[in-house]
């Protein structure tokens, strides 16, 4: 069984169609990169899996979106608990204006965990997973805004990991970061793969090539090509993919 799947998914903002008949199957513990020119529907597609598109009014979805074989848009699905299964990392680091500790503890607290010892452990292990512990262990009570952009983004990943999701959705997580911070995040993505299924939107093709197992190329709301990353970059089957990855259009 696939970890994530979409079957014949159409998505509309009002009357304008943003996704057309998207079929993708994603295996567990893999990294999938979504690439394509801006506005082609990558973010929209990513947000299907934790139903973040629900927050935008006047949208319609057709087809099936499955996590572990279960349709996330089925009647009776509790959206809040669905979102616990997926951690999301956004384009710009967006830690809450809280302490470093409380940022990571947030997801636990809103999900009803009150055992302070458990929270403590979970916060520590999550921060360790993103290789941030040594940098922040002495200032857990300080504002998260005091961290650098790269540290903030790793903190946001730790915050997502704390609720123990099995899927991590990343929407251009390094687009606001410097090259060194970017490298750290990419390394992290590679390491997290053993425990999580990761989908990462990027418009940086080198990044897609570096971190992902498979790559999906979107263009104008359509899935043009979905293949093993190395294949897609060395031997694209569709001319449009070829043009995009060789930089002939942007």
């Amino acid at each position: 069984m696939y970890k994530l799947e979409s079957k014949h998914v159409d998505f509309f903002y009002g009357a304008s169609q943003a996704l057309k008949d998207i079929n993708i199957s994603i295996e567990e513990n893999t990294v999938t990169a979504l690439i394509g020119p801006s506005g082609c529907g990558k973010s929209t597609y990513l947000r299907l899996f934790n139903r973040m598109n629900d927050l935008i009014s006047n949208t319609t979805i057709k087809g099936e979106v499955l996590i572990d074989g279960l349709d996330v848009y089925a009647k009776g699905v509790n959206v809040d608990s669905l979102r616990k299964k997926t951690g999301m990392v956004f384009q710009k680091p967006n830690p809450f204006p809280k302490t470093i500790f409380e940022n990571v503890a947030y997801g636990l607290r809103v999900n009803g965990i009150t055992d302070e010892k458990l929270i403590q452990e979970r916060v520590e292990s999550s921060i360790k997973k993103v290789v941030l512990w040594d940098e922040v262990k002495d200032k857990l009570k300080k504002s998260a805004f005091e961290l650098s952009g790269g540290q903030q983004q790793r903190l946001c990943i730790a915050r997502a990991l704390a609720i123990q999701p099995s899927v991590i959705l990343m929407d251009e997580p390094t687009s606001a970061l410097d090259p060194i911070s970017t490298a750290k995040i990419e390394e992290l993505v590679y390491e997290l793969k053993s425990k999580y299924t990761i989908v990462i939107v990027t418009h940086n093709m080198q990044q897609a090539a570096r971190v992902s197992d498979k790559t999906a190329f979107f263009y104008l709301g359509e899935l043009i090509e979905f293949n093993i990353t190395r294949e897609l970059f060395t031997n694209p089957m569709v001319e449009r993919t070829q043009n995009y990855i060789t930089g002939r259009f942007g």
Binding site: M88, V110, N111
Partner: peptide, 10 residues
């Protein structure tokens, strides 16, 4: 900030 919160199941 709202999206980050919703994303964590709040």
């Amino acid at each position: 900030f709202r999206h980050a919160s919703y994303g964590l199941g709040a």
